[in-house]
Amino acid sequence: MDKNKKIYIAGHNGMVGSAIWRQLLSNGYTNLIGKSSKELDLRNQFAVKEFFEKEQPDVVIDAAARVGGILANNSYPYQFLMENMQIQNNLIDNSLLNNVEKFIFLGSSCIYPKFASQPLKEEYLLTDSLEPTNEWYAVAKITGIKSCEAIRKQFDKDYVSLMPTNLYGTYDNFDLNTSHVLPAMIRKFHEAKVNNNTPVTLWGSGTPLREFLFVDDMAASVIFALENKLPEHLYNVGTGEDLTIKALAELIQSIVGHTGDIIWDSEKPDGTPRKLMDISKMHALGWKHKIGLSEGIQQTYQWFLENQDNFKEVKI
Rank of each mutant, 00 (worst) to 15 (best):
L182A: 12
P183A: 08
P183M: 08
M185Q: 09
R187I: 00
K188L: 14
F189G: 05
F189P: 06
K193Q: 15
V194A: 05
V194F: 06
N196K: 12
N196C: 04
N196A: 13
V200S: 13
V200K: 12
V200F: 06
L202M: 11
L202E: 12
W203Q: 09
G204F: 02
S205W: 03
S205Q: 09
S205L: 04
G206K: 01
G206Y: 00
G206H: 01
G206S: 04
T207R: 10
T207K: 12
T207W: 01
P208G: 10
P208Y: 04
P208T: 03
P208M: 06
P208S: 07
R210I: 03
E211M: 10
F212V: 02
L213D: 07
F214Q: 06
V215K: 00
D217K: 06
D217T: 06
M218S: 04
A219W: 13
A219C: 13
A219D: 12
A219H: 14
A220M: 06
A220E: 15
S221I: 00
S221H: 05
V222A: 07
V222S: 10
V222I: 15
F224P: 08
A225D: 05
E227L: 13
K229V: 12
L230C: 12
L230A: 12
P231V: 07
P231G: 09
E232D: 08
H233I: 00
H233S: 13
H233G: 01
H233Y: 05
Y235W: 01
N236C: 13
V237E: 11
V237D: 11
G238P: 05
T239K: 11
T239I: 14
T239P: 13
T239Q: 14
G240I: 07
G240L: 06
E241Q: 15
D242L: 00
D242W: 06
D242P: 00
D242K: 02
L243G: 09
I245D: 04
I245S: 07
I245H: 03
A247R: 07
A247D: 15
L248T: 10
L248F: 07
L248Y: 06
A249P: 05
A249E: 02
A249M: 00
A249S: 14
A249Y: 01
L251C: 07
L251Q: 07
L251H: 02
I252A: 10
Q253I: 01
S254K: 15
S254A: 13
I255S: 08
V256P: 08
V256C: 04
V256W: 04
G257V: 10
H258Y: 10
G260E: 10
G260H: 06
D261F: 00
D261N: 11
D261T: 08
D261I: 04
I262C: 04
I263A: 08
W264E: 11
W264D: 11
D265F: 01
E267L: 05
E267S: 15
E267M: 05
E267Y: 03
P269L: 02
P269Y: 01
D270H: 08
D270F: 09
D270V: 03
G271V: 10
G271C: 15
G271R: 02
G271Y: 09
T272K: 14
P273Y: 08
K275L: 12
L276T: 15
M277S: 14
